[in-house]
Design a binder for these strands. Structure first.
Length: 281
DNA sequence: ATTGGAACCTGGTGGC
DNA sequence: TGCCACCAGGTTCCAA
């Protein structure tokens, strides 16, 4: 389940094996991803060198000499560098084969990911509307607070909105809200600036920790098994439904927020809670 | 414009 | 044991 830390770790992992490599072949075994992969466009990549690998939110952008390609890992995708001769497994959909005999292999069992060739990735509709990067200075308390004033959704929904801030998925949204002592359904325009300050702080802290730990989990992208490397991170709430809160020993509860499993501690996360919301569970 | 919900897909799990 | 229903996950798109 790639969230921002997994995507960033993937970027760092494939970078040394892909940068400055020349693309010899693009092998599309299954074009049926989120959007169909157009073979005419992938052919246009042949002969070009990869000049940069960037991340924007959960998108990876590979800049070549004249074109770029954008990869999103969806919910089950992964990238690894393998010998081009390695037999493809069932869900190995695309190989970018380099002239040095290695291949950048895109695997995605659920096919929610995408592979898009484009001339100007930053102007692409998927990229250009993305909000601020959470680990930059542009993501600060006042920015979040301002965004909160313009809407009336629950705060969890707001921080998971990639047009506002990118890269906060379900796992880290749960964790950041717990750390901040904020109820996921707290209506965002009722939050104070200091609550926004706290939330911004914990989002940054949790993402940084996860990237750090991801770096130790995903060691070698050239290994034949190309492990996806989920973080063995210490999670306070996510996946702990029914277990006891580490802070107050109350049982953790599950609620649904925007069809998403959301785990909270009712004792530790009471802030900004409207009475009408409290009655709902 | 804002918000909620369906859709996309497959592997894993729990119930019968 | 097999079968079936359901769930997880990120994002876009459509409808209200």
């Amino acid at each position: 389940m790639p969230e921002l830390p997994e995507v960033e770790t993937t970027r760092q992992g494939v970078l040394p094996h892909s940068l400055h490599q020349q693309i010899q072949t693009v092998l599309v075994r299954n074009p049926k991803l989120r959007w169909p992969v157009d073979i005419r466009f992938t052919k246009a990549l042949l002969g070009q060198q990869i000049q940069a690998i960037r991340r924007r939110g959960k998108y990876l952008i590979f800049d070549c000499e004249y074109l770029s390609f954008i990869i999103h890992l969806g919910m089950s995708g992964r990238l690894c560098v393998v010998p081009a001769t390695k037999i493809a497994a069932k869900h190995d959909h695309i190989d970018i084969i380099f002239s040095n005999g290695k291949a950048l292999r895109f695997t995605d069992p659920r096919r929610f990911g995408c592979f898009i060739v484009t001339e100007n990735p930053d102007a692409h509709k998927l990229i250009k509307k993305l909000g601020v990067e959470p680990l930059t200075r542009n993501f600060h308390a006042h920015y979040l607070w301002q965004q909160c004033q313009r809407r009336q959704v629950g705060i969890k929904q707001l921080i998971m909105n990639s047009e506002i801030v990118v890269g906060v998925g379900n796992i880290y949204a749960n964790e950041a809200l717990f750390q901040s002592g904020l109820h996921p359904l707290a209506v965002c325009d009722t939050l104070s600036l200091s609550q926004c300050l706290r939330l911004v702080h914990y989002i940054k802290q949790i993402l940084r920790q996860a990237i750090k730990q991801g770096g130790t989990t995903l060691k070698d992208f050239t290994q034949s098994d190309g492990k996806p490397g989920y973080f063995q991170q210490f999670l306070y709430v996510y996946g702990r439904k029914g277990e006891l809160c580490y802070e107050c020993q109350s049982p953790l509860q599950e609620i649904r927020v925007s069809q998403r499993s959301t785990i909270i501690c009712k004792t530790c996360q009471p802030l900004g809670l409207e009475p009408s919301i409290k009655d709902n569970y």
